[in-house]
Design a protein around this nucleic acid. Structure first.
Lengths: 170, 170
DNA sequence: CTTGGAAAGTCAACATGACTGACATAATAT
DNA sequence: ATATTATGTCAGTCATGTTGACTTTCCAAG
């Protein structure tokens, strides 16, 4: 706060973006943006018999068809009991199907059915619409910065997973 | 990574950053980063008799000392019954104090006590440490982009609140 | 000055999505 | 043969959100 002026505090680099005030604004930005980010699919989900947890499961099964329960577990960062409740209803309702592993028959590989894929599309389209409009408003170089900061913020394990799934496009 | 090349699809502007794939990566980045972002204070909170909801209340009371219950309610986006449970324990434990409004005596203005401020500092320092290291790793222009995209993603009401509290710095 | 509405607080009931702990089954690995 | 892994399940608990109903206090407009 309050105009530190052109005073280069450290070695000539301008480190104003690392002030506590800037960091606190970043924290608030994360909070408000994340709320908006989850609000759209939540609105669709209410009324349906599913919640945010189902959305997340469906999202990652769509992203990586055939992933095992264990993998999904660590990506979502919840206990198997918690995931199981969600997965069971998705399977019972015919949104997700499991196939026994060929190499290791203990493993269950998860796939979306057409019905599951349809729900995924509906939910993710709501979310993508907001993301799209934010991206458009901010422009490509802001988007690049956005992605860089978020990536640097992740825990190393999930960052590895995240970057491994990268990028798809071009 | 991924070299979108010189392929100008639309009217000369390169809009590759708006592909569904890019949007989906943004969605995942938000998910993973937010998880990491809340993990540090959550770790501190466990063991203490407080949770994430207490953290949020304390954060915003610290940011805007003297705000009313109604204001906090709309910033947090929860019902008064939900907030009240949290606020009550914070007041009982002497972390937050209320003062009756001078102009309007129906209003209660919220303030952190020294004890409350101490908890706020501890929690927010954990969060700021992660934010600081992400900011440092990504650099100032990435940080600017990060903030722009998040801001564009917020719901208009909260964006107004957020930008009104801005910026302190420079 | 009465009356309507706003700000705050509370009680009760309920839903969701986390958690732990314990246990079962099947299949792989040693 | 035995240990370990992957999955699934039952039961209980907790944190945090929700609705709905109701009270008290106080401001403001008729």
């Amino acid at each position: 706060m309050s105009e530190p002026g052109a005073g280069a505090k450290q070695g000539g680099e301008n480190l104003l973006f690392l002030t506590d005030e800037q960091l606190r604004k970043g924290i608030e930005a994360m909070f408000f943006a994340y709320r908006a980010f989850t609000a759209d699919p939540d609105r669709i989900l209410e009324g349906l018999a599913y919640g945010r947890a189902h959305h997340r499961a469906v999202h990652f099964i769509n992203r990586q068809p055939g992933l095992t329960v264990n993998t999904l577990l660590s990506v979502l960062g919840v206990t198997k009991q918690s995931l199981n409740r969600v997965l069971r209803t998705l399977i019972e309702d015919g949104l997700v199907e499991t196939r026994v592993g060929r190499k290791d028959k203990r493993e269950r590989h998860l796939y979306l059915t057409e019905k599951g894929a349809a729900l995924e599309r509906e939910l993710s389209e709501a979310q993508r619409a907001r993301m799209r409009s934010a991206y458009r408003a901010a422009g490509p170089s802001a988007v690049a910065g956005f992605r860089e900061v978020l990536e640097a913020m992740m825990d190393p394990d999930l960052r590895r997973y995240y970057t491994a799934m990268k990028d798809g496009s071009a």
